[in-house]
Amino acid sequence: MNLSRTENLAMLVAALSGVAWGLFWIPLRALDDAGITGVWAVVLFYVLPTLLLLPLIVVRRRRFIAGGWPLHCAGLLSGVALACYAGALVFTDVVRALLFFYLTPIWSTLLERLVLGEPITARRWGMIGLGLIGLLLILKIDTGFSGGPNLGDWMGAIAGIVWAMAAVCMKSDESGNGIDFTLSYFVWGSVAALLLAVLPLEGQTSAPDWETIGDVLPWILPVVLFLVIPPAIGIMWGATVLSPGLLAILFMTEISAGTVTAALWADEPFGVREVSGVILITAAGILEPLLLMCRRDP
């Protein structure tokens, strides 16, 4: 497979991974209904994949150790970032968490320039602008929201910046691969989620009992196997192939998928504003890849 095909496949995988994680609200809502609430639902979605992947960690233990600082720095940063993002969804309004986290394409593009020396094209800024306008439309930011930044807002903003740093680390590590980055991500993400769960933060909920966890295992295991682990592998592999800024733009498909499925299955609003936002975000996600593919064609 030549580089062009690899990049094309990585763009498709990253976009589809974003779509898959856009469905993540469904099992989270089901866990909340089952009594596993707040950050403890986040803990479950990190620890359970780590346990399922433990045999693979054992098999690849030498590579896992030999990866050293570059591998585990990327895993630590990505784990902390997405644990903080999930925490932001708990400690602030979903609208605010999404807004602060999805400034990520800006941070990723700036770090890409500063660390990797990649030029920032007008096309890239245009795609970021389209995506952010679509996000603002969906989130109805023009109606405003009250109050200054709270804990969850800061967690969302920090998550976006730290994820941008993680993407740059993975892109710059030429010896890294998506499987080992995924394993490191789940291990360090489990640590971050557990630390977040035990911190004395306002709004924390109590840990679920073992009986409650046992009741959800029959359906949560397939969710983890099909909706959590494969997209994580896709995103981590995509981060080794694509520029951090482009990866962040492609991952905004999460917002579109979440908006559409929430309208279909949760009776959330889906009018002209939401349709326009989805179209703009989708355009941001596909126009740059299409332009890149056209540019490579002879």
Rank of each mutant, 00 (worst) to 15 (best):
I36M: 10
A164V: 00
L3R: 13
F226K: 00
V115A: 12
R62A: 15
L3D: 13
D33H: 14
G129S: 08
P244E: 11
M155H: 04
G160D: 02
A266C: 02
E202P: 03
T6A: 13
T253G: 00
T261W: 06
V272D: 15
V198D: 12
A262C: 07
E112M: 07
V80I: 15
I161R: 02
S175Y: 08
A81R: 01
C169V: 00
A81L: 02
Y185D: 00
I26R: 09
V13D: 06
W25S: 04
D153S: 11
F145W: 15
R5S: 08
I286K: 09
S206G: 12
G178L: 11
L77Q: 03
D173P: 01
T37A: 10
V42R: 00
V19G: 00
T282E: 03
F270T: 09
E112W: 02
L196H: 12
L201F: 06
W210G: 05
D142P: 05
A257M: 07
P218Q: 05
K140T: 13
C73F: 05
W25Y: 13
C169D: 00
G38W: 04
A193T: 06
E211V: 12
L217R: 08
L89D: 03
A66D: 15
R123Y: 11
W219Y: 12
I138K: 02
N2K: 08
T109P: 09
L71C: 05
I255R: 02
F100T: 14
M236E: 15
I233Y: 15
M11H: 01
L12G: 12
A10M: 10
E174S: 10
V260D: 14
T92G: 12
P289I: 05
A10T: 11
H72T: 05
A15Y: 11
G152A: 14
A10P: 06
V42I: 13
P208E: 11
L135I: 13
A284V: 07
L98H: 06
I220Q: 09
C169W: 00
A266S: 08
S206H: 12
A193N: 06
L116F: 02
V260W: 07
A262N: 04
L264P: 08
N150H: 11
T6L: 14
S4K: 15
G38H: 03
A157R: 08
D297F: 10
V90Y: 00
W40P: 01
M127C: 15
R63P: 04
V43K: 04
G277V: 12
G152T: 05
I57Q: 13
L136V: 13
T6S: 14
P27F: 06
W237M: 10
G126D: 09
L89K: 01
A239G: 10
S206M: 12
R295K: 15
T121E: 11
P269K: 07
A66P: 03
A166K: 05
